[in-house]
């Protein structure tokens, strides 16, 4: 089982390796800039533990943990 964005510790950074999701979902992620080779860091967890705040390319996104599992980290 490879490491996903969901497994990253808060405060740590990883490089996106692939997006392992059906096409529409994959395209959505890619359109938001989550493409292979992008450096992404996990900023924080929401107070209830989900979703997570991630940052990439100078902006922040809110992603649910279950969706973050689609994003494989190198």
């Amino acid at each position: 089982m490879s490491k996903t964005l969901c497994d990253l510790q808060v405060g740590s950074t990883g490089i996106i390796n692939a997006i392992n999701a059906p096409l529409p979902i994959k395209q959505r992620f890619m359109d938001m800039g989550l493409v292979k080779g992008t450096s992404v860091s996990v900023e924080k967890l929401a107070p209830l533990g989900n979703p997570i705040q991630i940052s990439l390319k100078g902006y922040s996104l809110c992603v649910r943990k279950e969706d973050a599992k689609y994003i494989l980290i190198a």
Partner: peptide, 10 residues
Amino acid sequence: DGMPFIMELP
């Protein structure tokens, strides 16, 4: 539709 909830935090 099963699309992920991705939202920008501006």
